[in-house]
Design a protein around this nucleic acid. Structure first.
Lengths: 115, 115
DNA sequence: TGCATATTTCAATAATCCTTGTAGTATACT
DNA sequence: AGTATACTACAAGGATTATTGAAATATGCA
């Protein structure tokens, strides 16, 4: 995962309907859902859903499989995980344990240790 | 964290320089860095950096503190974490353990359990 | 083969976002 | 007060992205 990849993923998710689609597919699990059902669930036109699904696919966040005359889409878990890791990499100079669950805690622990 | 919030965060990060800024600040830790130093680090004009910093601030991913005539920006860890959680919420019908570290594993475990 | 269903592709318009330059505000120093 | 530094706000343009409708492709079934 590099910066360009991450931007593509983030941009793909940075849209109301696409985020809804992605979360729906995450919820649905590996077997996924056909495009038409997805479109209906997020209240999109077939054309619109197709456009957004293509964006998510292009980013590698979902993948398509044709099953008869349906095309099923499913979330690609690894890609999200890679992106999430990339986002917080090298946290606090490589000491992620410094940034506990709250900012206050992190601030207390890290204070004075940055240039 | 709701869908609108998440889209704002994702859009804020979905830009090369803003992602670089955010990762720089994550690396830097709670004490943050002044705007000028950030601009220089990501090779942005002062105006450009200011615009991008404002976007990240608006999304709640970083926050500004004036220190003398400098304005220091620092990453807001909790916000990222909230967003990351939101992204994978209700994974596999509320059974996140089904989506282990690889898609293969998840697929094996979940197979046949979705409608 | 011919028709129906599921989905995509294409083209055009509308909307949004990024960039650049200029001017403005806030603080510090003399 | 006057000047320098650090940064932000505004405005105009160019570029990218979203939306829509119409036409095309692929599959399944009679």
């Amino acid at each position: 995962m590099n910066s360009k990849d991450a931007v593509t993923c983030l941009a793909a998710l940075a849209h109301d309907q696409r985020l809804a689609i992605f979360r729906l597919l995450v919820k649905e699990g590996p077997s996924g859902l056909p495009a038409g059902e997805i479109a209906e669930a997020v209240d999109a036109t077939p054309t619109g859903a197709s456009f957004h699904l293509k964006e998510l696919d292009r980013a590698g966040l979902i993948h398509a499989t044709r099953v008869g005359r349906y095309i099923r889409y499913a979330a690609h878990f690894d890609k999200v995980r890679q992106m999430l890791t990339f986002l917080t990499e090298d946290c606090c100079q490589g000491n992620p344990e410094l940034c506990g669950s709250t900012l206050k805690k992190a601030r207390k622990l890290c204070k004075g240790e940055t240039k």
